Amino acid sequence: MDWVQALVLGVVQGLTEFLPISSSAHLRITSELFFDSDAGASFTAVTQLGTEAAVLIYFAKDIWRLLSTWFRGFVDAGVRRTADYRIAWYVVIGTIPIGVLGYLFKDEIRTSARNLWLVATTLIVFAILLGLAERFGPQRRAVEQMTMKDGVIMGCAQAMALVPGVSRSGGTITAGLAIGLNREAATRYSFLLAIPAVVASGVFSIPDVFERGGAGLQPSVAQMIVATVIAFAIGYATIAWLLRYVAKHSVYVFVWYRIALGLFLFGMLAAGQINAV
């Protein structure tokens, strides 16, 4: 990996991680189109540490409140009746599906799941699902009104994002809208739900990204740090923008963008302009 590649991919990660358009798909497509190589699942996972650091800082007060409530709930029955205590448990339980499936299918996630034919398909299919959820979801409930069933559903939706093109935020926002959460509530919860899984994935992927002779573009330590810092800075700004946007606008712009990108990718693959693997 050279410095241009590291800088570009850091920017792409920061811009796309929180939008429901799949950052892993954009890193995969960008690296293939412009650098004729796959950046690799490990590079994606490590740069996500930067964007998750942005989540930790942006939602620091919320995270501290949930964590402190969760721990106090072990010894205080009154605390266990609060919404914060329930939400903290929903995050824990919602993380289980992606943890289990990520471990069981680790090799497939890093190889066959990154096929660009599959990426193009998931971009379009999950765009349609997001559009249907936006159109028909009741969108009446706040995060505080979530149930355990809702937490499990959104956890399973997050697990689907192991396949590039699905989108972690896209999957969870789609599920949230479908079960009746309003757009801002679904978006906020998707950020919180992602923290344990993304941090764990990024930390465990650090050795893999520097493995010589491994798959994908191989950055130096300095390039990896710079790409991650760039992802953090741009990701922080993206969080603030997205929360303001979904409070007043539908998500149809992301639906149409995903469909257009998927069709473009199908065209490039059919014409033989880029390789699928």
Score class of each variant (00 low, 15 high):
residue 80 R to I: 12
residue 80 R to T: 10
residue 80 R to Y: 09
residue 81 R to A: 15
residue 82 T to G: 12
residue 82 T to H: 03
residue 82 T to R: 11
residue 82 T to V: 04
residue 83 A to S: 14
residue 83 A to D: 13
residue 84 D to W: 09
residue 86 R to D: 13
residue 86 R to N: 13
residue 87 I to M: 13
residue 87 I to Y: 07
residue 87 I to F: 11
residue 88 A to I: 10
residue 88 A to T: 10
residue 88 A to P: 08
residue 88 A to C: 12
residue 89 W to A: 12
residue 89 W to S: 12
residue 89 W to M: 14
residue 89 W to Y: 10
residue 90 Y to H: 10
residue 90 Y to C: 11
residue 91 V to N: 04
residue 92 V to T: 09
residue 92 V to N: 06
residue 93 I to E: 09
residue 94 G to V: 04
residue 95 T to H: 09
residue 96 I to L: 15
residue 96 I to T: 05
residue 96 I to Q: 03
residue 96 I to C: 07
residue 97 P to Q: 09
residue 97 P to I: 03
residue 98 I to L: 14
residue 98 I to R: 08
residue 98 I to D: 10
residue 99 G to A: 13
residue 100 V to W: 02
residue 101 L to A: 10
residue 101 L to T: 01
residue 102 G to P: 06
residue 103 Y to I: 06
residue 103 Y to V: 04
residue 103 Y to T: 03
residue 106 K to W: 05
residue 107 D to Y: 05
residue 108 E to R: 12
residue 108 E to T: 09
residue 108 E to P: 01
residue 108 E to G: 07
residue 109 I to T: 09
residue 109 I to R: 02
residue 110 R to V: 00
residue 110 R to A: 10
residue 110 R to N: 08
residue 110 R to G: 05
residue 110 R to S: 13
residue 111 T to F: 01
residue 112 S to I: 00
residue 112 S to Y: 00
residue 114 R to I: 00
residue 115 N to D: 15
residue 115 N to C: 15
residue 115 N to G: 08
residue 116 L to T: 01
residue 117 W to A: 15
residue 117 W to N: 15
residue 118 L to I: 08
residue 119 V to I: 11
residue 119 V to A: 02
residue 119 V to Q: 01
residue 120 A to I: 03
residue 121 T to I: 14
residue 123 L to I: 04
residue 123 L to D: 06
residue 124 I to L: 11
residue 125 V to A: 15
residue 125 V to N: 14
residue 126 F to K: 04
residue 127 A to H: 07
residue 128 I to Y: 13
residue 129 L to M: 11
residue 129 L to R: 01
residue 129 L to W: 02
residue 130 L to S: 02
residue 132 L to E: 10
residue 133 A to S: 05
residue 133 A to Q: 02
residue 133 A to V: 03
residue 135 R to L: 14
residue 135 R to Q: 12
residue 135 R to H: 09
residue 135 R to C: 11
residue 136 F to G: 13
residue 136 F to C: 13
residue 137 G to N: 08
residue 137 G to Q: 07
residue 137 G to V: 03
residue 138 P to Q: 08
residue 139 Q to L: 05
residue 140 R to I: 07
residue 142 A to M: 12
residue 142 A to G: 14
residue 143 V to H: 08
residue 143 V to K: 08
residue 143 V to L: 14
residue 144 E to H: 14
residue 144 E to C: 14
residue 144 E to G: 15
residue 146 M to V: 07
residue 147 T to K: 07
residue 147 T to F: 12
residue 149 K to M: 10
residue 149 K to N: 09
residue 150 D to Q: 06
residue 150 D to Y: 05
residue 151 G to C: 09
residue 152 V to G: 11
residue 152 V to F: 13
residue 153 I to S: 06
residue 154 M to K: 01
residue 154 M to V: 04
residue 154 M to P: 00
residue 155 G to F: 10
residue 155 G to I: 05
residue 156 C to Y: 00
residue 159 A to G: 07
residue 159 A to L: 13
residue 160 M to V: 12
residue 160 M to Y: 11
residue 161 A to K: 06
residue 161 A to S: 15
residue 162 L to Q: 11
residue 163 V to I: 14
residue 165 G to F: 09
residue 166 V to C: 07
residue 166 V to E: 05
residue 166 V to P: 01
residue 167 S to A: 11
residue 167 S to R: 02
residue 168 R to H: 13
residue 168 R to A: 12
residue 169 S to E: 01
residue 169 S to G: 07
residue 170 G to Q: 08
residue 171 G to R: 00
residue 174 T to P: 02
residue 174 T to Q: 07
residue 175 A to C: 06
residue 176 G to Q: 08
residue 176 G to P: 04
residue 177 L to E: 06
